[in-house]
């Protein structure tokens, strides 16, 4: 039965269900047991900085581990644990902290299966929070999924709603390869229908969020709701947008993207990441290469600027791709002229 759950609750439920189903699933991360108090009693005070693990320590005790602030060590331990019989789900609070432990991810976890001739499995999930929007400034706001998408051997998940978050996380936990799972901090409070029973969503299968014949918008994560707002505005002007949410950037469902662009002949890619060597430029390149003859207008990319995320609310609001900028880009590819610039 489906109930309304927040994104945060959907992830919590996926973790709890998989922990119940499989005793080798363990959680590790900073403060995730919910706060270890001064009086020596571990409790369920906080649910971690992301609020996602609330209640799990009381249910699963020593399978929910608070770690020291030693990302190289505990992310590496999650990976080593995965290689030797566990299915760890590590929480790396902000994706920006990946810098501290990146070797363990891209030289170790990502390479094992291939480099060891197919003999190794590394069923680890690293959940991490990303994105701008809460005035967290340059070192706590980045959308770094393109960096991970670049690395062969990693699977990269960027859900846009609570239903997908639950199904994709369960899939990630059951997957035998390392998965980096991106949770947008602004989406945590988003509500949606989520079935109580356990279910999976396969990787590499895009979702049609909205159907339309005029312009294809490819967007993921938080950008999906931005694209929806833009599409509402455009519908009133008679421009029908199709929104494709790839849900995973690696593997990427190019088939669905191509199919849509073949039909509309027009593409706007919306990406919260930086513009160079990013998700948007990657999708644009794939489409240019494979659907060139179908294109009726140059592809437009709506991205963050090539700049660190600024702190000041006015600047940060200008940093994040907005529905207005998406509307502008769609009008351009639709040949309707641009009225909005910021």
């Amino acid at each position: 039965m489906a109930r309304r759950l927040t994104f945060q609750q959907a992830i919590n439920e996926a973790l709890a269900q998989e922990m119940r189903r499989d005793p080798t699933v363990v959680l590790l991360g900073e403060d995730i047991s919910g706060g270890a108090g001064a009086n020596g009693q571990q409790g369920d005070a906080w649910g971690g900085p992301l609020g996602v693990t609330k209640g799990l320590w009381t249910q699963f005790n020593d399978r929910v581990l608070d770690t020291p602030i030693s990302e190289s060590a505990f992310i590496g331990a999650a990976i080593g644990g995965a290689a030797s019989g566990l299915r760890p789900v590590a929480e790396l609070m902000f994706v920006d902290f990946m810098g501290v432990c990146f070797d363990q991810i891209f030289n170790q976890a990502a390479k094992f299966r291939y480099m060891f001739g197919g003999k190794a499995r590394t069923p680890v999930v690293i959940r991490t929070m990303y994105g701008a929007g809460i005035r967290a400034a340059a070192q706590h706001s980045q959308a770094l999924y393109p960096i991970f998408t670049h690395i062969p051997g990693l699977k990269v998940v960027v859900p846009s709603n609570p239903y997908d978050a639950k199904g994709l996380l369960i899939q990630a936990i059951r997957d035998d390869d390392p998965v980096i799972f991106f949770e947008h901090k602004v989406l945590y409070t988003m509500e949606g229908d989520v079935p109580e029973e356990s279910y999976t969503i396969p990787f590499g299968e895009a979702a049609y969020v909205r159907e339309g014949d005029d312009v294809t918008i490819v967007a993921l994560g938080r950008m999906v709701s931005m694209a929806q707002q833009a599409a509402d505005t455009l519908a009133a002007e008679g421009i029908a947008c199709e929104i494709v949410d790839p849900r995973t950037t690696s593997p990427l469902d190019t088939e669905t993207i191509f199919e849509s662009v073949e039909r509309t002949g027009r593409l706007v890619v919306v990406d919260e990441a930086y513009p160079r060597c990013g998700f948007a430029s990657d999708v644009a390149a794939q489409v240019a290469q494979h659907c060139f003859s179908a294109l009726k207008a140059p592809i437009q990319m709506v991205t963050a600027p090539h700049a660190p995320v600024p702190f000041s609310p006015t600047l940060e609001d200008a940093f994040v791709p907005s529905p207005a900028r998406i509307v502008d880009a769609v009008r351009q590819v639709a040949g309707k002229g641009a009225e909005v610039t910021a």
Partner: peptide, 13 residues
């Protein structure tokens, strides 16, 4: 100061 966020230092050292 005895804490890293909510984690008392007896749990991390």
């Amino acid at each position: 100061n005895g804490y890293a966020e909510s984690t008392s230092s007896r749990y991390h050292q």
